Simulated assay, not measured.
Amino acid sequence: MSVRARIEATLRDRFSPERLIVIDESSHHAGHQPDITGTGETHMRVRIVAGAFEGMTRLARHRAVTEALRPELDAGLHALAIEPAAPGEPTRW
């Protein structure tokens, strides 16, 4: 299973989102560090809308997603961009 697929599965299980998009942006970061070639799944963007985020601050939402994905980060995911929202909140995507 790919890193992207594992992230999607984890976030669906944890937050039951009404909308979820996981984008692999690794190719945009090739050469930023010697071991980042752009060919692996090293940089991900998560766009998620979930009722679980209602009443949470932006920081708390980021922390919740980061903690849910801690195993991926510990296993080598280099960067994680998070765009969380509660239902009904405006998004740029």
Rank of each mutant, 00 (worst) to 15 (best):
A86D: 02
A81G: 07
R19C: 04
G88R: 06
I82L: 14
P84L: 02
S16K: 09
E25Y: 05
I23A: 13
H28W: 15
V3K: 01
T39P: 09
T91A: 02
L80I: 05
G88Y: 11
A5H: 11
R92V: 12
T37M: 13
P17F: 05
T57E: 02
R47C: 06
D24M: 13
E18T: 14
R61V: 09
E8Y: 05
G88T: 08
L69W: 03
G55I: 10
G40R: 14
I48V: 11
V65T: 02
E83Y: 15
R47W: 09
R12D: 07
A68T: 07
E54A: 15
A81C: 05
R45Q: 08
I36P: 04
P71Y: 11
P84T: 00
A9L: 10
H43T: 05
G40Y: 07
T42D: 08
Q33E: 14
R92A: 13
L69N: 04
A81K: 04
A5V: 08
W93T: 06
L69T: 07
I82Q: 05
M1T: 07
H29T: 09
I48Q: 06
V49M: 01
R58N: 15
G55K: 04
R6S: 15
A79H: 11
S2I: 06
I82P: 04
P90R: 06
T37E: 14
R6V: 15
T66V: 04
E18L: 12
L11P: 09
W93G: 13
R6A: 15
A75Q: 03
G51C: 02
L80T: 04
A5C: 03
A9W: 06
R19L: 10
A60N: 09
F15G: 01
G31Y: 10
V65M: 02
V65S: 03
L59F: 05
T91I: 10
R70C: 02
L11R: 10
L69I: 07
S2C: 12
R19M: 09
P17I: 01
V3C: 06
R70T: 13
S27R: 13
G31H: 05
L80N: 06
P90E: 07
R70I: 05
S2M: 10
M44N: 06
S27V: 08
R12E: 14
R19P: 01
T91H: 09
T57H: 02
V65C: 02
V46H: 00
A85P: 08
T37D: 15
T66D: 04
L73E: 09
H32I: 11
G88N: 08
R58E: 14
T57W: 02
R6M: 12
M44A: 15
V65E: 00
Q33M: 14
I7P: 00
R61P: 07
A30L: 10
P17R: 03
V49G: 00
E83K: 14
P84Q: 05
H28K: 14
R19T: 02
A52F: 01
A5D: 12
H62I: 09
E72M: 13
R61N: 07
T57N: 01
E8C: 05
G31I: 10
A85Q: 12
G55R: 05
P90D: 08
T91S: 09
S27L: 07
A30R: 12
T39E: 15
W93C: 09
I21F: 06
A75G: 00
R47T: 08
A60M: 08
L73G: 09
E83N: 15
L77W: 00
E67S: 13
